[in-house]
Design a protein around this nucleic acid. Structure first.
Length: 188
DNA sequence: CACAGGATATACT
DNA sequence: GTATATCCTGTGA
């Protein structure tokens, strides 16, 4: 079952929990979502916390769309907008288990190790060729494909990665036992 | 383990 | 205007 706009028009935590195990493809290349982080508009670590800017404009758009931004001047990171238009809640996609288009991902990443193809927000954007071109695009249309997970997933929660503000909130979600996480997830 | 790389935002002077 | 921090990764100690 493809994920609809209604799926994303809910609390960012419900969306986060249920996205673990979903399939995420761009032009047929991608895999299973095994790690993500929730960013709520009242959360000081969220890009939308201080209001709209040129960079984060698509966070304030309708749910079910992509928010792509450049991180540390080098990498791209992709978020899925949740909740409602104007609210600026989103989930940051942090890691995939590669299942589709492995050779294409290896070529783009310039490396063989399957475990490192999509284990990190910048890495997975490179593997899936996600750039600013994708910012603001709807997730239920080409080039994206998002499929709901077919079985229950064992989801674990822990503190988020790489932030200083609100670092104590356990808003990082992962698939228990996955070897494709960007780093180990210690339950909080 | 440390640190370069360098866009974007915010907090200063 | 300048300075500092950031939702990170690759490389080299």
């Amino acid at each position: 079952m493809p994920l609809t706009k209604e799926f994303f028009a809910r609390s960012v935590h419900n969306v986060a929990k249920e996205l673990i195990g979903a399939t995420f493809l761009v032009d047929g290349v991608g895999g299973t979502i095994v790690e993500l982080e929730a960013y709520h508009h009242e959360d000081p670590a969220a890009h939308g916390y201080r209001g709209r800017t040129e960079r984060n404009a698509s966070m304030f758009g309708p749910p079910g769309h992509a928010y792509v931004y450049r991180s540390y001047g080098i990498h791209w990171c992709v978020n899925f907008v949740c909740e409602a238009e104007g609210v600026a809640d989103a989930v940051l996609i942090r890691a995939l288990e590669p299942t589709h288009g492995l050779d294409e991902m290896r070529r783009r990443r310039g490396l063989d190790d399957e475990r490192l193809l999509c284990a990190g927000p910048g890495r997975l954007c490179q593997a899936l060729a996600i750039t600013r071109e994708h910012d603001g695009l709807p997730l239920d249309r080409t080039p994206f494909r998002l499929e709901q997970r077919s079985e229950e997933a064992q989801v674990v929660r822990g503190p988020r990665v790489g932030i200083s503000r609100a670092a104590e909130l356990p808003w990082r979600y992962g698939l228990a036992g996955s070897r494709y996480l960007s780093r180990p997830l210690r339950p909080a």
